[in-house]
Design a protein around this nucleic acid. Sequence first.
DNA 1: CATTCATATGCGCTATTACTCATATGTGTA
DNA 2: TACACATATGAGTAATAGCGCATATGAATG
Lengths: 111, 111
Amino acid sequence: MNANTYHAEAVKDLSKVFKVLSEPNRIRILMSMGLECAPVSAIIARTGLSQTNVSFHLRVLREAGLVKGERNGSFIFYCLYDTKLLEILSGLTDWREASQKARESEYTQSA
Amino acid sequence: MNANTYHAEAVKDLSKVFKVLSEPNRIRILMSMGLECAPVSAIIARTGLSQTNVSFHLRVLREAGLVKGERNGSFIFYCLYDTKLLEILSGLTDWREASQKARESEYTQSA
DNA sequence: CATTCATATGCGCTATTACTCATATGTGTA
DNA sequence: TACACATATGAGTAATAGCGCATATGAATG
């Protein structure tokens, strides 16, 4: 049992989270929710995506444990499972923007 | 121009990074590099992946600006473009592990 | 210059995924 | 009960990604 097998579970879960977050529209949905819960119809309005598509992405986000939905009358309110996700997203954005110029000017090639 | 279009570029870049990180083997490659540069052969040995596959993933990681490669004789040494990526990965791992139990016991369903 | 070693690349295959359309489920209300 | 609204789900499709095999490139060494 080396370092790889030791982190196997963590790697597995991490890659799943990354896969879920690799869809631009899912990121937009997460950002559109912000700190407060919102019904699906609000998310549809904010993102401009189709109802079917939003529903599809919400399920993916839900199954990944990134959002949760609670029924309230005929509406279902969705919110971030952990609002810390917003900080993570903005932190990563800052990180990428900070190194963007360096990446653009540097070669980083192979041969 | 609303909030969505304002963040459009950031969302685009973020989703690309997440997509690159959504591959378990790529995460393993990144972790196997750690803080120091290593030739491809070392990465192959550490991960147990095929040479073709490692080369393929390294290109993806390189084009995403996550690693850089420098030739040294007949070897090409790869290293993290920014070692802060390691902290990010471990930070996210901790974040997921911390909420894992809650996610497992809670419903987080839709209807 | 021929050979060997390290690494990259093109091709074909298969599996996955995001999307739309149509339809189903569930809730509130007359 | 019937109807309207909010949301979920299933089928079908087109695009993409990861993998292995074979091969190419490029550096070192005799």
